[in-house]
Simulated scan of single mutants.
Amino acid sequence: MPSLPAIETVPSASTEERVGVLDTLFEPCTQLHTLSVETLGETKFESYSALIDVVGRQLQSLYESRLESDQKWLNDILAAHPRLGEKKVDSEQSRNEQAQLNQGEPGEGEKLAKLNQEYEEKFPGLRYVVFVNGRSRSVIMEDMQRRIQRGDVQQEKHDAIQALCDIANDRANKLLAA
């Protein structure tokens, strides 16, 4: 099981240890490492929630940028999150979080895979990211369908940033309570 160091030790941690913090809270992603590892070494945080807020603001800055390179960078960070219902997930945390999505009615897995494909065709370079938070597969699929139909790529990026931060806060809370 992954763990988090005491928050007050993060700024003095090695680069590899700060990468580990980011990978534990978010998903392994070189672009996120490049964006945030230095900040984690330069900033004293009162809590993991404060650290996650800082990373969230960095992601928001990419979102607000008009530079194509920043938009690609953000897309790469958002796409580091595994597809919902995917069988092979590298992150132990994501595997545990998605475990309930791999249970459900017959045919739902295929429908979820189809929705993932539709989503990625509608929003090239993005991946559907949502804080599952105990919701059923059918509720998540309804949300996914609604977002596909909405068709607003900027809102998708905004929602995904919020979901990444919500997921990271949930992970931190669970790991610190363990």
Rank of each mutant, 00 (worst) to 15 (best):
M1N: 08
M1S: 15
S3Y: 14
I7F: 09
I7L: 05
T9A: 12
T9F: 14
V10L: 06
A13W: 13
V21I: 08
V21F: 10
C29R: 09
C29T: 04
T30V: 14
L32T: 04
L32R: 04
L32D: 02
H33W: 14
L35H: 06
E38F: 11
T39A: 13
L40D: 10
G41C: 07
T43W: 08
T43G: 01
K44N: 05
S47A: 08
Y48C: 07
A50H: 06
A50P: 01
L51Y: 07
L51R: 01
I52S: 09
G56E: 12
R57N: 09
R57F: 03
R57M: 12
Q58P: 02
L59Y: 05
L59S: 04
L59R: 03
Q60I: 00
S61A: 15
E64H: 03
E64A: 06
E68T: 07
E68D: 07
S69L: 07
W73K: 12
L74M: 04
L78W: 05
A79V: 01
A79N: 03
A79F: 02
A80D: 02
H81F: 13
P82H: 13
P82L: 14
R83E: 12
L84W: 10
L84R: 01
K88C: 00
V89F: 08
V89C: 00
D90V: 07
E92C: 00
Q93T: 11
S94F: 11
S94V: 05
E97T: 00
Q98K: 03
Q103S: 03
P106I: 05
G107K: 05
E110H: 06
K111F: 03
K111Q: 15
K111W: 08
L115M: 11
L115K: 10
Q117L: 08
E118R: 12
Y119M: 02
E121A: 08
E121G: 02
F123S: 05
L126F: 05
R127S: 11
R127Q: 09
Y128N: 05
Y128L: 09
Y128E: 12
Y128C: 07
V129A: 10
S136K: 15
S136R: 14
S138T: 11
M141F: 04
I148S: 12
I148Q: 14
I148P: 10
V153C: 10
V153R: 15
E156N: 12
K157P: 00
H158M: 10
L164W: 12
C165Q: 15
I167V: 15
A172L: 14
A172C: 15
N173W: 03
N173P: 00
L175K: 01
